[in-house]
Design a protein around this nucleic acid. Sequence first.
DNA 1: CAAATGCAAATTGTCTGACATATGAAAATT
DNA 2: AATTTTCATATGTCAGACAATTTGCATTTG
Lengths: 246, 246
Amino acid sequence: MKIDPNNATDLSAQIAKAIRDEIIAGRLIVDQRLPSEAELAEQFDVSRSTVREALKRLAAQSLIRTQRGATGGAFVNRISFEEAYAQQITTSTLLLSMNAVSFETACEARFALERSCAALCARRRSAAHLAAMRAEIHRQAQPGLTDEAFCASDVSFHRALVDGAANPVLSYQLAGAVEAMQPLMNMITFTARDRARIIALHDRIANAAEAQEGAGIAAGLTALEEETQSLAAGVFAARAARSPQE
Amino acid sequence: MKIDPNNATDLSAQIAKAIRDEIIAGRLIVDQRLPSEAELAEQFDVSRSTVREALKRLAAQSLIRTQRGATGGAFVNRISFEEAYAQQITTSTLLLSMNAVSFETACEARFALERSCAALCARRRSAAHLAAMRAEIHRQAQPGLTDEAFCASDVSFHRALVDGAANPVLSYQLAGAVEAMQPLMNMITFTARDRARIIALHDRIANAAEAQEGAGIAAGLTALEEETQSLAAGVFAARAARSPQE
DNA sequence: CAAATGCAAATTGTCTGACATATGAAAATT
DNA sequence: AATTTTCATATGTCAGACAATTTGCATTTG
Protein backbone atom coordinates (compact mmCIF):
# COMPACT_ATOMS: atom_id res chain seq x y z
CA MET A 1 0.00 0.00 0.00
CA LYS A 2 1.73 3.11 -1.24
CA ILE A 3 0.74 6.68 -1.93
CA ASP A 4 2.44 9.40 -3.94
CA PRO A 5 2.98 12.65 -1.98
CA ASN A 6 3.66 14.52 -5.23
CA ASN A 7 0.34 13.52 -6.74
CA ALA A 8 -2.00 16.47 -7.10
CA THR A 9 -4.96 14.61 -5.61
CA ASP A 10 -5.62 14.78 -1.90
CA LEU A 11 -3.59 12.48 0.26
CA SER A 12 -6.72 11.40 2.08
CA ALA A 13 -8.32 10.36 -1.21
CA GLN A 14 -5.19 8.42 -2.19
CA ILE A 15 -5.11 6.64 1.14
CA ALA A 16 -8.79 5.82 0.92
CA LYS A 17 -8.26 4.39 -2.55
CA ALA A 18 -5.30 2.31 -1.39
CA ILE A 19 -7.31 0.77 1.41
CA ARG A 20 -10.40 0.38 -0.78
CA ASP A 21 -8.35 -1.51 -3.34
CA GLU A 22 -7.06 -3.84 -0.63
CA ILE A 23 -10.63 -4.60 0.40
CA ILE A 24 -11.86 -5.16 -3.15
CA ALA A 25 -8.89 -7.41 -3.88
CA GLY A 26 -9.70 -9.44 -0.80
CA ARG A 27 -6.40 -8.76 0.92
CA LEU A 28 -8.35 -7.13 3.73
CA ILE A 29 -11.20 -9.40 4.68
CA VAL A 30 -14.48 -8.84 6.47
CA ASP A 31 -14.18 -8.03 10.18
CA GLN A 32 -10.44 -7.67 9.91
CA ARG A 33 -9.12 -4.79 11.96
CA LEU A 34 -7.16 -2.07 10.23
CA PRO A 35 -4.10 -0.63 11.96
CA SER A 36 -4.94 2.17 14.38
CA GLU A 37 -5.07 5.72 13.07
CA ALA A 38 -1.69 6.45 14.62
CA GLU A 39 -0.13 3.40 12.98
CA LEU A 40 -1.64 4.23 9.59
CA ALA A 41 -0.36 7.78 9.92
CA GLU A 42 3.13 6.42 10.45
CA GLN A 43 2.84 3.88 7.62
CA PHE A 44 1.73 6.46 5.07
CA ASP A 45 3.89 9.15 6.60
CA VAL A 46 1.05 11.62 7.01
CA SER A 47 -0.70 13.18 9.97
CA ARG A 48 -3.47 11.53 11.89
CA SER A 49 -6.02 14.04 10.57
CA THR A 50 -5.28 12.99 7.01
CA VAL A 51 -5.71 9.34 7.90
CA ARG A 52 -8.97 10.16 9.63
CA GLU A 53 -10.31 11.93 6.56
CA ALA A 54 -9.45 8.87 4.51
CA LEU A 55 -11.25 6.59 6.96
CA LYS A 56 -14.34 8.80 6.93
CA ARG A 57 -14.44 8.46 3.16
CA LEU A 58 -14.45 4.70 3.50
CA ALA A 59 -17.04 4.82 6.27
CA ALA A 60 -19.32 6.86 3.97
CA GLN A 61 -19.28 3.93 1.55
CA SER A 62 -19.95 1.46 4.36
CA LEU A 63 -16.61 -0.19 3.63
CA ILE A 64 -15.48 0.13 7.24
CA ARG A 65 -17.02 0.69 10.65
CA THR A 66 -15.24 2.16 13.65
CA GLN A 67 -15.41 1.40 17.32
CA ARG A 68 -13.97 3.34 20.19
CA GLY A 69 -12.13 2.00 23.17
CA ALA A 70 -9.21 -0.22 24.00
CA THR A 71 -9.98 -3.00 21.52
CA GLY A 72 -11.61 -0.60 19.10
CA GLY A 73 -10.45 0.56 15.72
CA ALA A 74 -11.60 0.44 12.14
CA PHE A 75 -12.92 -2.87 10.85
CA VAL A 76 -13.71 -4.00 7.36
CA ASN A 77 -17.47 -4.00 7.17
CA ARG A 78 -19.64 -6.65 5.59
CA ILE A 79 -21.91 -4.64 3.33
CA SER A 80 -25.44 -5.79 4.01
CA PHE A 81 -28.16 -5.81 1.41
CA GLU A 82 -30.00 -3.20 3.50
CA GLU A 83 -27.09 -0.77 3.42
CA ALA A 84 -26.60 -1.41 -0.26
CA TYR A 85 -30.32 -0.76 -0.91
CA ALA A 86 -30.13 2.57 0.86
CA GLN A 87 -27.06 3.69 -1.05
CA GLN A 88 -28.53 2.54 -4.33
CA ILE A 89 -31.73 4.44 -3.72
CA THR A 90 -29.93 7.65 -2.76
CA THR A 91 -27.69 7.51 -5.80
CA SER A 92 -30.47 6.58 -8.21
CA THR A 93 -32.77 9.29 -6.88
CA LEU A 94 -30.13 11.99 -7.21
CA LEU A 95 -29.08 10.72 -10.60
CA LEU A 96 -32.60 11.13 -11.92
CA SER A 97 -33.26 14.50 -10.32
CA MET A 98 -29.91 16.02 -11.25
CA ASN A 99 -29.65 14.88 -14.83
CA ALA A 100 -33.04 15.91 -16.11
CA VAL A 101 -33.93 12.34 -16.98
CA SER A 102 -37.35 12.42 -18.56
CA PHE A 103 -40.23 10.74 -16.84
CA GLU A 104 -40.66 8.65 -19.94
CA THR A 105 -37.11 7.26 -19.86
CA ALA A 106 -37.17 6.50 -16.15
CA CYS A 107 -40.57 4.89 -16.40
CA GLU A 108 -39.57 2.76 -19.33
CA ALA A 109 -36.48 1.50 -17.49
CA ARG A 110 -38.37 0.82 -14.32
CA PHE A 111 -41.06 -1.30 -15.93
CA ALA A 112 -38.62 -3.09 -18.20
CA LEU A 113 -36.61 -4.10 -15.14
CA GLU A 114 -39.65 -5.03 -13.15
CA ARG A 115 -40.95 -7.29 -15.90
CA SER A 116 -37.74 -9.26 -15.50
CA CYS A 117 -39.11 -10.44 -12.14
CA ALA A 118 -42.41 -11.61 -13.55
CA ALA A 119 -41.49 -15.19 -14.38
CA LEU A 120 -39.55 -15.78 -11.18
CA CYS A 121 -42.25 -14.17 -9.06
CA ALA A 122 -44.90 -16.35 -10.65
CA ARG A 123 -42.89 -19.44 -9.84
CA ARG A 124 -41.83 -18.59 -6.29
CA ARG A 125 -44.09 -15.99 -4.71
CA SER A 126 -45.18 -17.08 -1.23
CA ALA A 127 -48.55 -16.51 0.38
CA ALA A 128 -46.97 -13.69 2.36
CA HIS A 129 -45.95 -11.83 -0.78
CA LEU A 130 -49.41 -12.24 -2.19
CA ALA A 131 -50.97 -11.01 1.05
CA ALA A 132 -48.69 -7.97 1.03
CA MET A 133 -49.77 -7.12 -2.49
CA ARG A 134 -53.44 -7.50 -1.63
CA ALA A 135 -53.00 -5.37 1.48
CA GLU A 136 -51.50 -2.55 -0.54
CA ILE A 137 -54.28 -2.77 -3.11
CA HIS A 138 -56.78 -2.48 -0.29
CA ARG A 139 -54.98 0.53 1.12
CA GLN A 140 -54.91 2.21 -2.26
CA ALA A 141 -58.68 1.98 -2.48
CA GLN A 142 -59.23 3.81 0.80
CA PRO A 143 -60.94 7.17 0.34
CA GLY A 144 -59.15 10.28 1.56
CA LEU A 145 -55.72 8.91 0.80
CA THR A 146 -53.22 11.62 -0.13
CA ASP A 147 -51.35 11.38 -3.40
CA GLU A 148 -48.12 10.81 -1.51
CA ALA A 149 -49.55 7.97 0.54
CA PHE A 150 -50.96 6.47 -2.65
CA CYS A 151 -47.53 6.57 -4.26
CA ALA A 152 -45.87 5.12 -1.18
CA SER A 153 -48.32 2.24 -1.21
CA ASP A 154 -47.67 1.81 -4.91
CA VAL A 155 -43.97 1.42 -4.16
CA SER A 156 -44.73 -1.13 -1.45
CA PHE A 157 -46.89 -3.10 -3.86
CA HIS A 158 -44.10 -3.29 -6.38
CA ARG A 159 -41.56 -4.12 -3.70
CA ALA A 160 -43.68 -7.11 -2.72
CA LEU A 161 -43.86 -8.18 -6.36
CA VAL A 162 -40.09 -7.92 -6.74
CA ASP A 163 -39.38 -9.68 -3.46
CA GLY A 164 -41.69 -12.44 -4.65
CA ALA A 165 -38.98 -13.47 -7.08
CA ALA A 166 -37.01 -14.57 -4.01
CA ASN A 167 -33.70 -13.46 -5.37
CA PRO A 168 -31.91 -10.98 -3.10
CA VAL A 169 -29.66 -9.73 -5.87
CA LEU A 170 -32.67 -8.95 -8.01
CA SER A 171 -34.39 -7.19 -5.10
CA TYR A 172 -31.31 -5.11 -4.52
CA GLN A 173 -30.93 -4.07 -8.12
CA LEU A 174 -34.59 -3.19 -8.42
CA ALA A 175 -34.76 -1.20 -5.21
CA GLY A 176 -33.08 1.69 -6.99
CA ALA A 177 -35.27 1.48 -10.05
CA VAL A 178 -38.55 1.29 -8.15
CA GLU A 179 -37.86 3.73 -5.33
CA ALA A 180 -36.08 6.33 -7.39
CA MET A 181 -39.26 6.71 -9.41
CA GLN A 182 -41.23 7.81 -6.37
CA PRO A 183 -40.20 11.48 -6.40
CA LEU A 184 -41.17 11.60 -10.07
CA MET A 185 -44.49 9.91 -9.40
CA ASN A 186 -45.14 12.36 -6.61
CA MET A 187 -45.24 15.14 -9.16
CA ILE A 188 -48.43 13.66 -10.54
CA THR A 189 -51.89 14.26 -9.15
CA PHE A 190 -54.11 11.21 -9.32
CA THR A 191 -57.81 11.68 -9.85
CA ALA A 192 -60.20 9.12 -8.39
CA ARG A 193 -60.66 7.67 -11.85
CA ASP A 194 -56.88 7.37 -12.35
CA ARG A 195 -56.55 5.55 -9.08
CA ALA A 196 -59.34 3.16 -9.95
CA ARG A 197 -57.62 2.22 -13.19
CA ILE A 198 -54.30 1.68 -11.46
CA ILE A 199 -55.88 -0.39 -8.73
CA ALA A 200 -57.61 -2.52 -11.33
CA LEU A 201 -54.26 -3.20 -12.97
CA HIS A 202 -52.70 -4.00 -9.61
CA ASP A 203 -55.48 -6.43 -9.05
CA ARG A 204 -54.89 -8.02 -12.40
CA ILE A 205 -51.20 -8.41 -11.55
CA ALA A 206 -51.95 -9.87 -8.14
CA ASN A 207 -54.38 -12.34 -9.70
CA ALA A 208 -51.74 -13.42 -12.19
CA ALA A 209 -49.26 -13.85 -9.35
CA GLU A 210 -51.78 -15.93 -7.44
CA ALA A 211 -52.36 -18.11 -10.50
CA GLN A 212 -48.59 -18.24 -10.97
CA GLU A 213 -48.81 -16.99 -14.51
CA GLY A 214 -45.63 -15.12 -15.35
CA ALA A 215 -46.89 -13.92 -18.71
CA GLY A 216 -49.95 -12.49 -16.99
CA ILE A 217 -47.81 -10.51 -14.56
CA ALA A 218 -45.69 -9.19 -17.40
CA ALA A 219 -48.75 -8.21 -19.42
CA GLY A 220 -50.21 -6.46 -16.38
CA LEU A 221 -47.01 -4.53 -15.89
CA THR A 222 -46.96 -3.50 -19.52
CA ALA A 223 -50.53 -2.26 -19.27
CA LEU A 224 -49.61 -0.41 -16.09
CA GLU A 225 -46.65 1.16 -17.84
CA GLU A 226 -48.87 2.42 -20.66
CA GLU A 227 -51.37 3.75 -18.15
CA THR A 228 -48.66 5.53 -16.19
CA GLN A 229 -47.06 7.01 -19.29
CA SER A 230 -50.31 8.38 -20.67
CA LEU A 231 -51.24 9.72 -17.26
CA ALA A 232 -47.92 11.51 -16.93
CA ALA A 233 -48.09 12.81 -20.48
CA GLY A 234 -51.48 14.30 -19.70
CA VAL A 235 -50.28 15.95 -16.52
CA PHE A 236 -47.17 17.42 -18.14
CA ALA A 237 -49.10 18.63 -21.18
CA ALA A 238 -51.62 20.39 -18.96
CA ARG A 239 -48.83 21.94 -16.95
CA ALA A 240 -47.02 23.12 -20.07
CA ALA A 241 -50.20 24.68 -21.44
CA ARG A 242 -50.76 26.59 -18.21
CA SER A 243 -47.23 28.03 -17.95
CA PRO A 244 -45.57 27.97 -21.37
CA GLN A 245 -42.28 29.63 -20.34
CA GLU A 246 -40.22 26.62 -21.31
CA MET B 1 -29.81 22.50 9.45
CA LYS B 2 -29.30 21.35 13.01
CA ILE B 3 -27.28 18.72 14.77
CA ASP B 4 -27.53 17.30 18.28
CA PRO B 5 -24.27 17.45 20.26
CA ASN B 6 -25.66 14.95 22.78
CA ASN B 7 -26.35 12.37 20.12
CA ALA B 8 -24.06 9.37 20.43
CA THR B 9 -23.25 9.30 16.72
CA ASP B 10 -20.25 11.19 15.41
CA LEU B 11 -20.74 14.87 14.85
CA SER B 12 -19.16 14.56 11.42
CA ALA B 13 -21.72 11.92 10.45
CA GLN B 14 -24.56 14.09 11.69
CA ILE B 15 -23.30 17.08 9.76
CA ALA B 16 -22.86 15.00 6.63
CA LYS B 17 -26.40 13.73 6.98
CA ALA B 18 -27.77 17.24 7.48
CA ILE B 19 -26.12 18.49 4.32
CA ARG B 20 -27.00 15.34 2.39
CA ASP B 21 -30.65 15.78 3.31
CA GLU B 22 -30.54 19.37 2.04
CA ILE B 23 -29.20 18.15 -1.27
CA ILE B 24 -31.74 15.35 -1.62
CA ALA B 25 -34.57 17.71 -0.74
CA GLY B 26 -33.36 20.09 -3.41
CA ARG B 27 -32.69 22.96 -1.02
CA LEU B 28 -29.06 22.84 -2.10
CA ILE B 29 -28.94 22.68 -5.86
CA VAL B 30 -26.31 21.55 -8.32
CA ASP B 31 -23.22 23.77 -8.53
CA GLN B 32 -24.32 25.76 -5.52
CA ARG B 33 -21.43 26.63 -3.23
CA LEU B 34 -21.58 25.54 0.38
CA PRO B 35 -20.36 27.92 3.08
CA SER B 36 -16.62 27.70 3.67
CA GLU B 37 -15.32 25.19 6.17
CA ALA B 38 -14.76 27.97 8.69
CA GLU B 39 -18.32 29.24 8.28
CA LEU B 40 -19.78 25.74 8.57
CA ALA B 41 -17.71 25.19 11.70
CA GLU B 42 -19.22 28.30 13.22
CA GLN B 43 -22.77 27.43 12.09
CA PHE B 44 -22.66 23.94 13.57
CA ASP B 45 -20.52 25.08 16.50
CA VAL B 46 -17.81 22.50 15.91
CA SER B 47 -14.18 22.64 14.89
CA ARG B 48 -13.00 22.87 11.34
CA SER B 49 -11.61 19.30 11.47
CA THR B 50 -15.05 17.94 12.23
CA VAL B 51 -16.56 19.85 9.34
CA ARG B 52 -13.81 18.58 7.08
CA GLU B 53 -14.52 14.97 8.03
CA ALA B 54 -18.17 15.54 7.20
CA LEU B 55 -17.28 17.03 3.82
CA LYS B 56 -14.99 14.09 3.02
CA ARG B 57 -17.90 11.75 3.67
CA LEU B 58 -20.00 13.65 1.16
CA ALA B 59 -17.15 13.77 -1.33
CA ALA B 60 -16.85 9.97 -1.10
CA GLN B 61 -20.43 9.73 -2.32
CA SER B 62 -19.76 12.21 -5.12
CA LEU B 63 -22.31 14.55 -3.58
CA ILE B 64 -19.86 17.44 -3.47
CA ARG B 65 -16.60 18.42 -5.09
CA THR B 66 -14.07 20.80 -3.62
CA GLN B 67 -11.84 23.40 -5.16
CA ARG B 68 -8.97 25.26 -3.62
CA GLY B 69 -8.19 28.92 -3.91
CA ALA B 70 -9.88 32.26 -3.47
CA THR B 71 -13.16 31.43 -5.17
CA GLY B 72 -12.94 27.79 -4.19
CA GLY B 73 -14.97 25.83 -1.71
CA ALA B 74 -17.31 22.87 -1.71
CA PHE B 75 -19.90 22.70 -4.47
CA VAL B 76 -22.89 20.46 -4.88
CA ASN B 77 -21.88 17.99 -7.55
CA ARG B 78 -24.01 16.82 -10.43
CA ILE B 79 -23.70 13.05 -10.19
CA SER B 80 -22.87 11.80 -13.66
CA PHE B 81 -23.94 8.43 -14.99
CA GLU B 82 -20.26 7.48 -15.17
CA GLU B 83 -19.68 8.16 -11.48
CA ALA B 84 -22.88 6.37 -10.60
CA TYR B 85 -21.81 3.35 -12.70
CA ALA B 86 -18.52 3.13 -10.88
CA GLN B 87 -20.10 3.31 -7.46
CA GLN B 88 -22.75 0.80 -8.42
CA ILE B 89 -20.18 -1.65 -9.65
CA THR B 90 -18.02 -1.33 -6.54
CA THR B 91 -20.98 -1.83 -4.23
CA SER B 92 -22.44 -4.69 -6.23
CA THR B 93 -19.12 -6.49 -6.47
CA LEU B 94 -18.46 -6.26 -2.75
CA LEU B 95 -22.02 -7.20 -1.95
CA LEU B 96 -21.66 -10.43 -3.89
CA SER B 97 -18.22 -11.32 -2.59
CA MET B 98 -18.95 -10.51 1.03
CA ASN B 99 -22.33 -12.14 1.39
CA ALA B 100 -21.62 -15.53 -0.05
CA VAL B 101 -24.17 -15.03 -2.78
CA SER B 102 -24.24 -18.22 -4.81
CA PHE B 103 -23.18 -18.16 -8.41
CA GLU B 104 -26.61 -19.48 -9.27
CA THR B 105 -28.46 -16.59 -7.61
CA ALA B 106 -26.24 -13.92 -9.10
CA CYS B 107 -26.41 -15.49 -12.53
CA GLU B 108 -30.17 -15.79 -12.41
CA ALA B 109 -30.54 -12.12 -11.47
CA ARG B 110 -28.11 -10.97 -14.10
CA PHE B 111 -29.81 -12.73 -16.98
CA ALA B 112 -33.29 -11.86 -15.78
CA LEU B 113 -32.30 -8.20 -15.77
CA GLU B 114 -30.55 -8.43 -19.07
CA ARG B 115 -33.58 -9.98 -20.76
CA SER B 116 -35.47 -6.84 -19.82
CA CYS B 117 -33.38 -5.02 -22.43
CA ALA B 118 -34.15 -7.47 -25.20
CA ALA B 119 -37.27 -5.85 -26.61
CA LEU B 120 -35.90 -2.32 -26.43
CA CYS B 121 -32.56 -3.36 -27.89
CA ALA B 122 -34.29 -5.07 -30.78
CA ARG B 123 -36.24 -1.92 -31.52
CA ARG B 124 -33.46 0.64 -31.14
CA ARG B 125 -30.02 -0.89 -31.54
CA SER B 126 -27.87 1.14 -33.92
CA ALA B 127 -25.35 -0.19 -36.40
CA ALA B 128 -22.62 0.81 -33.94
CA HIS B 129 -24.04 -1.40 -31.21
CA LEU B 130 -24.28 -4.29 -33.60
CA ALA B 131 -20.72 -3.74 -34.77
CA ALA B 132 -19.50 -3.66 -31.18
CA MET B 133 -21.18 -6.98 -30.50
CA ARG B 134 -19.72 -8.55 -33.62
CA ALA B 135 -16.27 -7.23 -32.75
CA GLU B 136 -16.40 -8.85 -29.31
CA ILE B 137 -17.57 -12.13 -30.80
CA HIS B 138 -14.62 -12.01 -33.15
CA ARG B 139 -12.23 -11.29 -30.29
CA GLN B 140 -13.64 -14.18 -28.28
CA ALA B 141 -12.82 -16.58 -31.08
CA GLN B 142 -9.14 -15.63 -31.17
CA PRO B 143 -6.89 -18.48 -30.12
CA GLY B 144 -4.59 -17.96 -27.16
CA LEU B 145 -7.01 -15.68 -25.36
CA THR B 146 -6.72 -15.91 -21.58
CA ASP B 147 -9.79 -16.74 -19.53
CA GLU B 148 -9.74 -13.25 -18.05
CA ALA B 149 -9.61 -11.58 -21.44
CA PHE B 150 -12.42 -13.85 -22.59
CA CYS B 151 -14.55 -12.78 -19.62
CA ALA B 152 -13.73 -9.12 -20.19
CA SER B 153 -14.83 -9.40 -23.77
CA ASP B 154 -17.97 -11.18 -22.62
CA VAL B 155 -18.77 -8.20 -20.40
CA SER B 156 -18.17 -5.81 -23.29
CA PHE B 157 -20.51 -7.83 -25.47
CA HIS B 158 -23.26 -7.61 -22.92
CA ARG B 159 -22.61 -3.94 -22.34
CA ALA B 160 -23.14 -3.34 -26.03
CA LEU B 161 -26.38 -5.30 -25.90
CA VAL B 162 -27.61 -3.29 -22.92
CA ASP B 163 -26.56 0.03 -24.39
CA GLY B 164 -28.45 -0.95 -27.52
CA ALA B 165 -31.66 -0.36 -25.58
CA ALA B 166 -30.69 3.33 -25.67
CA ASN B 167 -31.99 4.04 -22.21
CA PRO B 168 -29.32 5.51 -19.91
CA VAL B 169 -31.22 4.58 -16.76
CA LEU B 170 -31.38 0.99 -17.89
CA SER B 171 -27.67 0.99 -18.75
CA TYR B 172 -26.86 2.37 -15.34
CA GLN B 173 -28.92 -0.18 -13.47
CA LEU B 174 -27.49 -3.04 -15.48
CA ALA B 175 -23.88 -1.97 -15.14
CA GLY B 176 -23.86 -3.34 -11.62
CA ALA B 177 -25.52 -6.59 -12.53
CA VAL B 178 -23.30 -7.34 -15.50
CA GLU B 179 -19.95 -6.17 -14.17
CA ALA B 180 -20.34 -7.53 -10.68
CA MET B 181 -20.62 -10.98 -12.21
CA GLN B 182 -17.17 -10.75 -13.71
CA PRO B 183 -15.19 -11.77 -10.60
CA LEU B 184 -17.48 -14.76 -10.28
CA MET B 185 -17.07 -15.65 -13.93
CA ASN B 186 -13.32 -15.36 -13.58
CA MET B 187 -13.39 -18.30 -11.21
CA ILE B 188 -14.37 -20.52 -14.10
CA THR B 189 -11.96 -22.03 -16.58
CA PHE B 190 -13.33 -22.20 -20.09
CA THR B 191 -12.32 -25.04 -22.35
CA ALA B 192 -12.17 -24.46 -26.07
CA ARG B 193 -15.44 -26.32 -26.42
CA ASP B 194 -17.10 -24.16 -23.75
CA ARG B 195 -15.98 -21.05 -25.56
CA ALA B 196 -17.28 -22.31 -28.88
CA ARG B 197 -20.72 -22.90 -27.38
CA ILE B 198 -20.79 -19.44 -25.78
CA ILE B 199 -19.64 -17.78 -28.97
CA ALA B 200 -22.34 -19.59 -30.92
CA LEU B 201 -24.95 -18.24 -28.52
CA HIS B 202 -23.50 -14.74 -28.75
CA ASP B 203 -23.78 -15.06 -32.49
CA ARG B 204 -27.39 -16.13 -32.20
CA ILE B 205 -28.11 -13.10 -30.01
CA ALA B 206 -26.33 -10.73 -32.38
CA ASN B 207 -28.30 -12.17 -35.29
CA ALA B 208 -31.55 -11.63 -33.45
CA ALA B 209 -30.48 -8.08 -32.67
CA GLU B 210 -29.68 -7.50 -36.32
CA ALA B 211 -33.08 -8.87 -37.33
CA GLN B 212 -34.62 -6.72 -34.58
CA GLU B 213 -36.32 -9.70 -33.01
CA GLY B 214 -36.70 -9.07 -29.31
CA ALA B 215 -38.00 -12.56 -28.58
CA GLY B 216 -34.95 -14.01 -30.29
CA ILE B 217 -32.59 -11.98 -28.12
CA ALA B 218 -34.44 -13.07 -25.01
CA ALA B 219 -34.37 -16.70 -26.05
CA GLY B 220 -30.66 -16.46 -26.79
CA LEU B 221 -30.04 -15.00 -23.37
CA THR B 222 -32.03 -17.75 -21.72
CA ALA B 223 -30.01 -20.37 -23.56
CA LEU B 224 -26.83 -18.58 -22.55
CA GLU B 225 -28.00 -18.55 -18.94
CA GLU B 226 -28.57 -22.30 -19.00
CA GLU B 227 -25.19 -22.85 -20.60
CA THR B 228 -23.46 -20.67 -18.01
CA GLN B 229 -25.25 -22.32 -15.11
CA SER B 230 -24.42 -25.84 -16.21
CA LEU B 231 -20.85 -24.84 -16.93
CA ALA B 232 -20.48 -23.34 -13.45
CA ALA B 233 -22.18 -26.30 -11.82
CA GLY B 234 -19.67 -28.59 -13.50
CA VAL B 235 -16.70 -26.53 -12.39
CA PHE B 236 -17.89 -26.28 -8.81
CA ALA B 237 -18.73 -29.98 -8.62
CA ALA B 238 -15.26 -30.89 -9.88
CA ARG B 239 -13.68 -28.51 -7.39
CA ALA B 240 -15.74 -29.94 -4.52
CA ALA B 241 -14.77 -33.49 -5.46
CA ARG B 242 -11.09 -32.59 -5.45
CA SER B 243 -11.09 -30.83 -2.06
CA PRO B 244 -14.09 -31.98 -0.04
CA GLN B 245 -13.37 -30.00 3.13
CA GLU B 246 -16.57 -28.00 2.90
C1' DC C 1 -13.36 -17.83 46.20
C1' DA C 2 -16.42 -14.80 43.71
C1' DA C 3 -17.95 -10.42 42.80
C1' DA C 4 -17.61 -5.70 42.72
C1' DT C 5 -14.56 -1.82 42.23
C1' DG C 6 -11.01 1.03 40.63
C1' DC C 7 -7.39 2.06 37.53
C1' DA C 8 -4.38 2.06 33.56
C1' DA C 9 -3.94 1.61 28.69
C1' DA C 10 -5.49 1.89 24.05
C1' DT C 11 -8.28 3.92 20.69
C1' DT C 12 -11.38 6.98 18.39
C1' DG C 13 -13.63 11.72 18.60
C1' DT C 14 -12.95 16.60 18.94
C1' DC C 15 -10.57 20.98 19.43
C1' DT C 16 -6.97 24.58 18.69
C1' DG C 17 -3.64 26.83 16.18
C1' DA C 18 -0.41 26.92 12.73
C1' DC C 19 1.58 26.71 8.14
C1' DA C 20 1.53 25.18 3.11
C1' DT C 21 -0.58 25.61 -1.21
C1' DA C 22 -3.66 27.06 -4.79
C1' DT C 23 -6.37 30.50 -7.04
C1' DG C 24 -8.72 34.53 -8.48
C1' DA C 25 -9.10 39.51 -8.16
C1' DA C 26 -7.23 43.78 -7.32
C1' DA C 27 -3.26 46.75 -7.35
C1' DA C 28 1.02 48.13 -9.11
C1' DT C 29 4.17 48.37 -12.78
C1' DT C 30 5.83 48.58 -17.39
C1' DA D 1 -3.25 48.39 -22.44
C1' DA D 2 -0.79 44.55 -21.04
C1' DT D 3 1.81 42.39 -17.69
C1' DT D 4 3.43 41.49 -13.23
C1' DT D 5 2.98 41.62 -8.33
C1' DT D 6 0.52 41.46 -4.29
C1' DC D 7 -3.04 40.09 -1.42
C1' DA D 8 -7.14 37.92 0.36
C1' DT D 9 -9.51 33.64 0.66
C1' DA D 10 -10.03 28.99 0.62
C1' DT D 11 -8.74 24.15 1.04
C1' DG D 12 -4.93 20.74 2.34
C1' DT D 13 -1.81 19.21 5.87
C1' DC D 14 0.46 18.99 10.24
C1' DA D 15 1.39 18.81 15.38
C1' DG D 16 -0.17 18.45 19.82
C1' DA D 17 -3.57 18.29 23.23
C1' DC D 18 -7.60 16.69 25.71
C1' DA D 19 -12.21 14.21 26.00
C1' DA D 20 -14.84 10.03 25.80
C1' DT D 21 -15.25 5.18 25.49
C1' DT D 22 -14.06 0.57 26.19
C1' DT D 23 -11.40 -3.36 27.76
C1' DG D 24 -8.41 -5.93 30.74
C1' DC D 25 -6.18 -6.32 34.98
C1' DA D 26 -5.25 -5.57 39.61
C1' DT D 27 -7.28 -4.64 43.88
C1' DT D 28 -10.56 -4.63 47.20
C1' DT D 29 -14.60 -6.47 49.34
C1' DG D 30 -18.30 -9.69 50.69
